[in-house]
Computed example of a mutant assay.
Amino acid sequence: MHRLLALQKIITTGSFTKAAKELGYTQSSISQAIASLETEFNVKILKRSRTGASLTPAGQKLYPHFQNILRQYTDTKVIADQINGLETGIVKIGAINSLSRYWLPGLIRGFERLHPNIHFTLYQGDYDEIREDIRSGKVDLGFLKPPYTNGFKTSPLKIEQLLAIVPANHPLAKANNVSMTEIYKTFDNIILIPEGSHSSVLEAFNCLDIYPAIRDKIQDDYTVMAMVEAGLGVSFISELMLTNCPFAIKGIPTTPALNHSISLAYQDPANLSIASKRFLEYVESQKADLS
Rank of each mutant, 00 (worst) to 15 (best):
R3N: 05
L5P: 02
A6C: 10
L7W: 10
K9L: 11
I10T: 08
T17P: 01
T17H: 03
K18H: 10
A19F: 06
E22M: 13
Y25T: 02
A33V: 04
S36W: 07
L37S: 05
E38M: 05
T39V: 14
I45K: 02
R48T: 14
R48A: 09
R50W: 10
T51W: 11
G52C: 05
G52P: 03
A53N: 04
S54P: 03
A58W: 08
K61I: 09
F66Y: 14
I69N: 07
K77C: 03
A80R: 08
A80I: 09
N84F: 01
G85A: 10
G85Q: 10
I90L: 13
I90T: 13
K92V: 13
I93S: 06
G94Y: 15
I96K: 13
N97Q: 14
S100T: 07
P105I: 05
L107Y: 12
L107G: 06
F111W: 09
R113N: 08
R113F: 12
H115N: 15
H115I: 11
I118P: 12
F120H: 07
T121P: 00
Q124N: 12
D126F: 06
Y127K: 08
Y127M: 05
D128Y: 05
D128W: 01
D128N: 01
D128E: 04
E129V: 15
E132T: 06
D133R: 15
D140N: 15
L144W: 07
P147A: 07
T149N: 06
N150D: 10
N150P: 02
F152W: 13
K153F: 11
L157P: 03
Q161E: 11
L163H: 04
P167G: 00
L172V: 01
N176V: 02
M180H: 06
M180K: 03
T181P: 02
K185D: 06
K185P: 00
N189I: 01
I191A: 04
I193N: 06
E195A: 10
S197V: 11
S197H: 03
F205G: 09
F205M: 07
L208D: 05
I210Q: 14
P212V: 15
A213L: 11
A213P: 06
D216C: 04
K217G: 11
K217W: 08
I218R: 09
D221A: 10
T223H: 00
E229P: 01
G231A: 12
V234G: 00
S235F: 03
S235C: 04
I237M: 13
S238D: 15
L240K: 09
M241W: 10
L242H: 02
L242D: 02
T243V: 13
P246R: 00
F247K: 00
F247A: 00
A248L: 08
K250A: 01
K250H: 01
I252S: 03
T255M: 12
L258M: 06
L264E: 07
A265K: 01
Y266L: 03
D268H: 12
N271K: 14
L272W: 05
S276N: 11
E281T: 08
Y282S: 06
S285E: 12
Q286H: 08
A288K: 13
